[in-house]
Simulated assay, not measured.
Amino acid sequence: MYVTIPNEHGTPCAFTPLVSTLPQTAETRLKTGAYLYYEGDEVEWLYQVNSGVLRLTRLLSDGRRQVIAFGYPGDIVGFPSANIHHTDCEALTDVRLQPFRRSALESGEGDPQLHTALLQAALREISGMQDHFMMLGRKSASEKLASFLCVLAERVGIDLGAYRSVTLPMSRSDIADFLGLTTETVSRTFTQLRKSKIIAIDNIYTIIIQRPTALLELSMGDCD
């Protein structure tokens, strides 16, 4: 999951398993804190997230960390770069994954439908990365955090009448490293959104979006 251009209608994005006419490989399961793979490992498998949340990270040469993406149900992780993984991939929660051999992406001989589905997923990832890069370079701190919450609300939010609840399995520092901000800025921006009554903070892991339209407008730079 990247921070992409918000869905102006705010409609949830449904989880869609990849189609395969071949027998499915047994699910891979990870406990919280376990690693699926490390940067530099050879790519043998791609994985679709069935449940749970993953965090994909890279370390810069000076030791600073960049969170590249979060893997939510429906996302595909593990696309190769020169046949190797270019991030570490860690489970933020207990995770269930459907593995697919890398060859299913590279050749459609075994299962053309799966090959096409994986190619489409790769193209969506490229598009999502482009949106995310634009957000990193052009948006203010409040716009970045609002965009992040809007995407999560669409993907995994739970309706509470006129409000919407979003669970955040990641830490504030994870969010900061994902949005190109400091942890202090993320915490301060959460406080600003709460004081504006756009959100309520139920606990450190749960956000209640009280004014979804205002949050969407902020994500697009349409209000202060």
Results as ranks from 00 to 15, higher is better:
Met1Gln: 03
Tyr2Leu: 01
Pro6Asn: 00
His9Thr: 01
Gly10Arg: 00
Cys13Asn: 03
Phe15Gln: 06
Thr25Asp: 00
Glu27Phe: 00
Glu27Arg: 00
Glu27Val: 00
Arg29His: 10
Leu30Asp: 01
Gly33Phe: 08
Gly33Asp: 04
Leu36Thr: 04
Leu36Met: 04
Tyr38Cys: 08
Glu39Val: 12
Val43Ala: 10
Glu44Lys: 06
Tyr47Gly: 05
Tyr47Trp: 13
Gln48Met: 11
Ser51Val: 07
Gly52Glu: 08
Val53Trp: 12
Leu54Gln: 08
Arg55Asp: 12
Arg55Thr: 15
Leu56Phe: 15
Leu56Ile: 11
Thr57Ser: 15
Thr57His: 13
Leu59Lys: 14
Leu60Lys: 15
Leu60Arg: 15
Gly63His: 11
Gly63Gln: 08
Gln66Leu: 14
Val67Thr: 14
Val67Ala: 14
Tyr72Asp: 08
Gly74Ala: 07
Asp75Gly: 05
Phe79Ile: 06
Ser81Asn: 15
Ser81Asp: 14
Ser81Trp: 15
Asn83Glu: 15
His85Glu: 06
His86Cys: 11
Asp88Lys: 12
Asp88Ala: 13
Cys89Ala: 15
Glu90Val: 13
Leu92Gln: 02
Leu92Met: 03
Thr93Val: 10
Val95Cys: 09
Arg96Lys: 04
Leu97Arg: 04
Arg102Ser: 04
Glu109Asn: 07
Glu109Cys: 04
Asp111Gln: 01
Gln113Ala: 04
Gln113Pro: 00
Leu114Met: 01
Ala117Thr: 00
Leu119Ala: 05
Leu119Thr: 03
Ala121Val: 02
Leu123Lys: 02
Arg124Lys: 07
Arg124Gly: 01
Glu125Val: 06
Glu125Lys: 09
Ser127Tyr: 08
Met129Cys: 04
Met129His: 06
Met134Arg: 01
Leu136Arg: 02
Ser140Lys: 06
Ala141Glu: 11
Leu145Trp: 12
Phe148Lys: 06
Phe148Tyr: 15
Leu152Asn: 12
Ala153Arg: 09
Asp159Met: 10
Ala162Glu: 08
Val166Asp: 07
Pro169Ala: 02
Pro169Asp: 02
Met170Arg: 03
Ser173Cys: 02
Asp174Ile: 03
Ala176Lys: 03
Phe178Ser: 00
Thr182Cys: 10
Thr183Asp: 10
Thr183His: 09
Glu184Gly: 08
Glu184Gln: 12
Thr189Trp: 07
Thr191Phe: 11
Gln192Cys: 08
Leu193Thr: 03
Ile198Thr: 13
Ala200Lys: 09
Ala200Trp: 11
Asp202Leu: 14
Asn203Trp: 12
Ile204Arg: 13
Tyr205Asp: 06
Ile208Ala: 05
Gln210Ile: 07
Thr213Asp: 13
Ala214Pro: 03
Leu215Asp: 08
Leu216Phe: 12
Glu217Asp: 13
Ser219Val: 04
Gly221Ala: 04
Gly221Glu: 02
Asp222Ala: 09
